[in-house]
Design a binder for these strands. Sequence first.
DNA 1: ATAGTTAGTGATTGAGCACTAACTTCAATT
DNA 2: AATTGAAGTTAGTGCTCAATCACTAACTAT
Lengths: 184, 184
Amino acid sequence: MVRMSAEERRESVIRAATTEFARGGYHGTSTEAIARRVGVSQPYLFRLFPGKKAIFLAAAERCVEDTIRMFAEAAEGLEGEEARRAMGGAYVEAISEQPERLMMQMQMYLAVAAAEEEGDREFGEAVRTGWMRLWDTIHLPLGADAHETTTFLAQGMLINCLVAMGFPADHRVWAGLDPSEPDS
Amino acid sequence: MVRMSAEERRESVIRAATTEFARGGYHGTSTEAIARRVGVSQPYLFRLFPGKKAIFLAAAERCVEDTIRMFAEAAEGLEGEEARRAMGGAYVEAISEQPERLMMQMQMYLAVAAAEEEGDREFGEAVRTGWMRLWDTIHLPLGADAHETTTFLAQGMLINCLVAMGFPADHRVWAGLDPSEPDS
DNA sequence: ATAGTTAGTGATTGAGCACTAACTTCAATT
DNA sequence: AATTGAAGTTAGTGCTCAATCACTAACTAT
């Protein structure tokens, strides 16, 4: 057993929770599964976070932040088609190296409706704000072209879905999806 | 209490389950919620279907079928750009009139990974087959152009995500997304 | 009328889950 | 060496939920 500071543990929990929630969504993931992955007892999670929702929220926010930073860094100093290729490359790298981060975000999107009907309006607001930040982050390097931005994000969402469905990378449904090529 | 034939009831269950699963996903939806929506007792669902999974599967398959038929009918007799506009219009109509059908499909995509890790390989296979059928259905009217097909589906997935997040139709994040206009 | 079938319910159960409370272990400080 | 505070555990509670079972009500054919 390795003892850690509470702050470090919280980080571990966020990472583990991202992996687990990405797979099972909010309701399909037990706190016990998260605790097991962290290597800590299940009740201890409730000392680090006020509840399961807070863990989900923390993981979701972290994923959005990471993704925004990823695009910002990839596009740094670039513009237009060059920026697009750089960001596309970063996305492809992310999907192969940390698919949990992107699946977690899909789970997050789908969790909005359920949360909203349970009276939690804040969650949806946070998710939408995150999306807008992501939008703006890629909008600028793409020459502030709304159509380009939307096309880029649309391809990203399609990739997320194909990955979620478990299509292997060389499957024919990936045809026509090459972010390193321009779309028009 | 309205008495129905078992077959009619099963239809009602599929409709109700679509609405409920679309909102809460597999694990976030109780069989009681479905039964309540149908207007029938919870145990009776298990007379009509062997289990909760079977209900989810039936609803998922129905949604895919309906969507494929929708595109096939919209594009009937049309080709290329005309077919694209017709199918895009049908999609927009569907998203405003039966968003559950599309949200259910998103839930279905995300359920694949979880099912696969629980040893259920068939479910993922069925989902992927459905996607390929959808792909082929829109591929032909679009002049068998893989890039066009992918772009069309990508826009669809983006729309699904924006709807899931609860963005109102006039929000700025919808900018650049107009299926009635060509994309290049 | 009666025998048989089909639609549907109420009560219940066993498992899993989020969360709590009380206790223990360990490392740094005095 | 004793103290203390933070890290972590064990034991337990109340609740939800899928699924089962025994039963009733309504329809149908003879």
